[in-house]
Design a protein around this nucleic acid. Structure first.
Lengths: 194, 194
DNA sequence: CGGTAGGGATAGGGTTCT
DNA sequence: TAGAACCCTATCCCTACC
């Protein structure tokens, strides 16, 4: 007979998320070995963690599309082709709002309503973090949502998308953001985890 | 609207049963890929096989999926008349038989192809153990599989199922079989580990 | 051998059709 | 209405590749 399915409990899922925030994605064995999580996740394997994280990410993809649609009151076509030539689907998780590197204005986040100022007046990094923060999507916002947020809240130059995309890539490779690979490639996600 | 319902033909159902006997339950893709069955089951998917097998099994045990589910929820198993009481989904693992695989010549094993002898001529216990052994399911065979095996390989009296069910209960309570609980399962499983 | 990424299969809940 | 057929997808499995 096939394997009975062992459904994930909320506690396990929370432990997994905390583990990813602490150790990063792809560090499944490390998370499992961390005494902070090992008791909760004792019945899970590293592969289980990987699979569950993938599932969470996929769920986030659709949730974030829906949320972006409602929040920004805009019809979003499914992002079939990437806005840049990124090939790998991913999410980006903000590691911390208060880290020095990001140099945010206020440690606790951003104000809800940013004035419609020129994007060039703020650092692109700050704007991106504001978007991720204010979209309030615990499981990630895709690029389109972020672009739309910025378009809705700032006066943007025509090459805004490209600049933001480049900045996102930089922030996720050596900045305060963490890449999370997704199984499906029809969109790229950027998630802010509180 | 959707795909028209494609009713299972007796030939397809026979092929599915034969496939389960040959490869075990949960091996839907394997059955589908077996040239012995692939032509008959050409228009079926592995999921179709799984669903059909579920219908067959659950009908045999409870009459319908709905009844099975209700029985599980109320923790009051209400199997059909010829079944004895089930409490929880379980597997039964044979503790007997030191040998690994089916070996027609070894004393404790059973031949792969038993002659179509009258079930009453062999002890029910031996027949059950033969079924469990030859079904080769590491995670257990359910009653339906065992019944089917016996029906396919022996001439059975009309009350075979009842006799086998009673015997299974006895063997699992104080015989060479061990019960193993499953987490989510309608049916009762009987597994032979080699 | 141990670990991860990714494709793919299965199990079980749910839905549609007859 | 019940039951058979079908859908959805979380979970699990298998393999390639370090």
């Amino acid at each position: 007979m096939g394997a009975p399915k062992q459904k994930w409990t909320p506690e396990e899922e929370a432990a997994l998320k905390a583990g990813v925030l602490k150790h990063g994605t792809g560090k499944w064995r490390t998370i499992l070995s961390d005494p902070q999580f090992s008791s909760v996740l004792k019945s899970r394997s590293n592969v289980d963690l990987k699979d569950k994280w993938r599932n969470i990410s996929v769920t986030a993809l659709w949730g974030s599309r829906k949320k972006a649609k409602l929040a920004l009151r805009r019809n979003l076509p499914a992002p079939k082709q990437d806005d840049n030539n990124n090939t790998t689907p991913l999410s980006i998780v903000s590691l911390a709002n208060g880290q020095e590197r990001t140099n945010p204005t206020s440690p606790g986040g951003f104000g809800a309503g940013s004035p419609q100022t020129h994007a060039s007046k703020k650092s692109i990094t700050r704007i991106i973090l504001e978007a991720i923060t204010n979209l309030k999507e615990t499981r990630g916002s895709d690029r389109t949502s972020i672009f739309l947020y910025i378009e809705e809240n700032f006066k943007t130059p025509p090459n805004m998308k490209r600049n933001v995309a480049v900045r996102l890539k930089h922030l996720s490779s050596n900045g305060p953001l963490v890449k999370i690979k997704h199984r499906y490639r029809f969109s790229t996600n950027f998630t802010s985890v509180g």
